[in-house]
Simulated scan of single mutants.
Amino acid sequence: MKPMQFVLASGTALMTLGATLSFAQDWQPDRPINLIVPWGAGGSTDQVTRVTAPILAEALGVEVVVVNQPGASGAIGTQEVLNAPKDGYTWTANAIANNATYSVTGLLPDTDIDDWHIYLSVANVPVVSVPADSQFTDFGQLLEAFQSDMGRGISVATAGITSSGGTAIAALSGAADNFEYNMITYDGGGPAAIATASGEAMVTTQLAVEQTELIRGGRLKALAVLSDQPLVLEGVDPIPPITNWLPDMELAPDYFGIFLPVGVPEEVVATLDRIWGEEVANSEAIKTYAETFGAVFAPSYGAEARALAMPVVILEACDAVERGEAVNDPSTIGIDCETRTEVGVQ
């Protein structure tokens, strides 16, 4: 299987959808909006959401309150949003692959990608890192250890099985003869990275944005990025691509953003479409965040966002099947894992 090339929407090339914006009257909220981040503070979702929320608040004229509600790999906070009144005042933020595959993993059996209006801001990549004083100095040494008898004793800090770090280590195992490991879970990617830097775990596979400051500060040693290109971060040596060791590993960018449940009033969606196209797509704050922390500035919304999200959704859904972690077959959400394509639900 060939590595999947990263195809990202850039902010400057974004608004092919701009001409199709709804002409519905702008929504004017009259009270604060709750934006539920279903992960702990400091992780990848929390970081970019706290950069984005003030932009939305200024455009809407009301406060956008970011609320961390971690648990069950993001499912608890996500369910809270699904249960809330569909009045436009309760949103969520996450990696879109999570919202799209909670049904496959059994955490939220009755939801899929089409239960959400999608607003993407950045794409992220996982990085394999170890504490600064680790015995492992490159990924090849770590991979050899994973594949040896000591593999099951190597502790890997993640934010949970369905988190970016959890799916990253599982994908690495699947690409390298299904080695065993000992996963330790935390309430978010930030805490998992910090725990690794402090020696609580031997490895972390969380996202670059959750590790960058620890890597720059010399507390974590980055061994590989799950990409087919090196990751360049200011102040550190380029992080080599995982394809240097696993050339056939399938890869897809992990898109993050803000999601509104389907069923909110049309004027809410039309207003956020406009704000995303005019403000978020041109945001220097989000662009600077991405450039600083090793993400890709990639705003999109609507049908374009859904299309960009599907490669990682398909990858994670089908990998869950291969690992024996799928509770429900991806065909129930319209994914054919034999062809690794979206086919729709009959």
Rank of each mutant, 00 (worst) to 15 (best):
I118V: 15
E144S: 14
V128L: 12
T92S: 13
D115R: 05
D138P: 08
A123D: 09
G153Y: 15
S121K: 04
I113A: 11
S121P: 06
D110T: 08
Q147L: 03
N98G: 01
A97T: 00
A93I: 01
V122P: 00
W91I: 02
A93F: 08
Q147R: 13
D114M: 10
F139A: 12
G151R: 10
A145P: 06
A100C: 04
D87H: 08
D138G: 08
V122K: 03
V130K: 06
A132L: 04
S134F: 10
D149Q: 12
D112P: 01
A123H: 06
V128Q: 07
I113G: 08
P126G: 10
A123Y: 06
V125E: 15
Y89A: 05
A100D: 01
A93M: 05
D138Y: 13
S148A: 09
T92N: 05
V104A: 00
P131C: 13
L120K: 10
D133T: 10
G153S: 14
D138W: 13
D138T: 06
T105N: 04
G153K: 09
T90W: 09
S121A: 14
F136R: 11
L142E: 07
F139V: 04
M150W: 05
D110N: 15
Y102C: 02
Y119T: 02
S134A: 13
G106A: 00
Y119I: 07
L108C: 02
E144V: 05
A95Y: 15
K86R: 15
K86F: 14
T90S: 12
Y89G: 07
N124E: 07
E144W: 05
V128H: 03
L108R: 00
L107D: 02
V122W: 05
V130Y: 08
H117G: 09
S103F: 01
T101W: 06
G88Y: 08
T90F: 06
D115Q: 07
T90V: 01
R152T: 06
G140Q: 11
D149F: 15
V122Q: 05
A123P: 01
G106Y: 01
K86G: 07
F139G: 12
A145T: 04
F139Q: 11
D138S: 12
W116K: 06
D87F: 13
